[in-house]
Amino acid sequence: MAGPTTAQRGDSKRVKSKLRLQTKLGLKPKSRPQQKQKSSGSGPPRRGGRRLPSRRTLILSAVAAVLVGGAAVWALYGSDWLRATQVKVGGTEVLTRGEVRDAARVPLGAPLVSVDTDAVAARLRAKLPRIDTVRVERSWPHGISLKVTERRPEALIKQGAKFVEVDAGGVRFATVDKPPRGVPFLAVEPGKANGPTASSLRRFGPDRLRKEAVRVAAELPAAVRKETRTIRVRSYDSITLELTGDREVVWGSGERGAEKARTLTALMKAAHGADHFDVSAPSSPAVSGS
């Protein structure tokens, strides 16, 4: 390795001589200035190769976020821009839109965001049993939308001079003065029950038998349904249909309803003059009368 050059040795001697002279004169030798570290640039320190935001930037960002959040809260709750002023109703058939609006009791004038849509739906179902399902939605900026689906009567129960409508689930949801057209009557006869029939009623109860009859009504082909006047229930497995023209269909239980419906449709097409059909065992049906 090469040693110091002649010039370097000379410089070193001069520095040493200067230091000795300063010592004799009582002067404090000046320390050599430290070399400043190179800076990577002005601004805040970096972390992981990324420049960190300054304190001022963080404060300004926080203030801006608070202002934006406050403005949003004021717009939703304090301003007149987003308030419930309209109620739109759709899907009604028997019910009127006014009936639905009155039962919903939407708080008009309240901030739209504060309207409790679940509470509105609960009020509608409680006040109007005819409603099967309801969807309550906010319609920005000023509306509440009520979309209802009404229950459909599958059978009727005569109650004095009025008629009770029963849906496919056996729910008695409305009492009307006039029976709707094309809906059969339902007759459950516990008073006439004796022997096996009485045992069936004790086991299942009138409500269960009523549901079975409504289940039969819901599975009837459209053409047969139009001609069905009464669905008579004597026990769980003794359901009969009374059709126009003094015709009768022995249905049996409510089980295998779709298969029985297909069999009955085929029988009625093949035997136009028959007045008694038995599809209680759909694999081996019977027809009589002429």
Rank of each mutant, 00 (worst) to 15 (best):
S61C: 01
A62H: 02
A62L: 10
V63H: 06
V63S: 04
A64W: 03
A64C: 03
A65V: 10
A65R: 04
V66Y: 01
G69M: 07
G70W: 02
A71M: 01
A72R: 07
V73E: 08
V73K: 05
W74A: 11
W74V: 04
A75Y: 09
L76R: 06
L76A: 08
G78P: 03
G78F: 06
G78Q: 01
S79I: 13
S79Y: 12
D80T: 12
D80C: 02
W81V: 15
W81C: 15
L82C: 14
R83Q: 15
R83V: 15
A84Q: 04
Q86Y: 01
V87E: 08
K88G: 04
V89D: 08
V89P: 10
G90Y: 03
G90E: 13
G90T: 14
V94Q: 07
V94H: 14
V94P: 07
L95D: 15
L95F: 15
L95T: 14
L95S: 14
T96G: 15
R97S: 14
R97V: 06
G98T: 15
G98P: 09
V100C: 02
D102L: 10
D102F: 07
D102M: 04
A104S: 11
R105L: 11
R105F: 00
R105C: 00
V106T: 09
V106Q: 09
V106M: 04
P107I: 00
L108H: 08
L108I: 13
G109I: 07
A110K: 15
A110W: 13
P111M: 12
S114K: 10
S114D: 15
V115L: 06
V115C: 09
D116G: 09
T117V: 13
T117A: 14
D118M: 10
A121Q: 06
A122R: 14
L124F: 10
R125N: 10
A126C: 11
K127M: 07
L128H: 13
R130E: 12
I131G: 05
T133K: 15
V134N: 09
V134H: 14
R135A: 11
V136L: 08
E137M: 13
R138S: 05
H142F: 10
H142C: 02
H142T: 15
I144D: 00
I144N: 00
I144E: 00
I144F: 00
S145M: 12
L146W: 05
L146M: 11
L146C: 08
L146N: 10
K147E: 15
K147F: 12
V148K: 09
T149M: 11
T149W: 10
T149D: 13
E154I: 11
E154M: 09
A155N: 12
I157N: 01
I157E: 02
Q159L: 03
G160Y: 02
G160K: 06
A161G: 09
K162T: 13
F163C: 06
V164W: 03
V164N: 01
E165G: 02
D167I: 03
D167H: 00
D167R: 05
A168H: 07
A168I: 01
G169H: 10
G170A: 04
V171I: 07
R172L: 07
F173E: 04
F173R: 04
A174I: 04
T175Y: 05
T175L: 00
V176C: 01
V176T: 01
V176N: 02
D177T: 11
K178W: 01
K178Q: 14
P179F: 02
P180W: 04
R181C: 03
R181W: 00
G182W: 00
G182L: 08
V183W: 05
F185N: 06
F185M: 00
F185T: 04
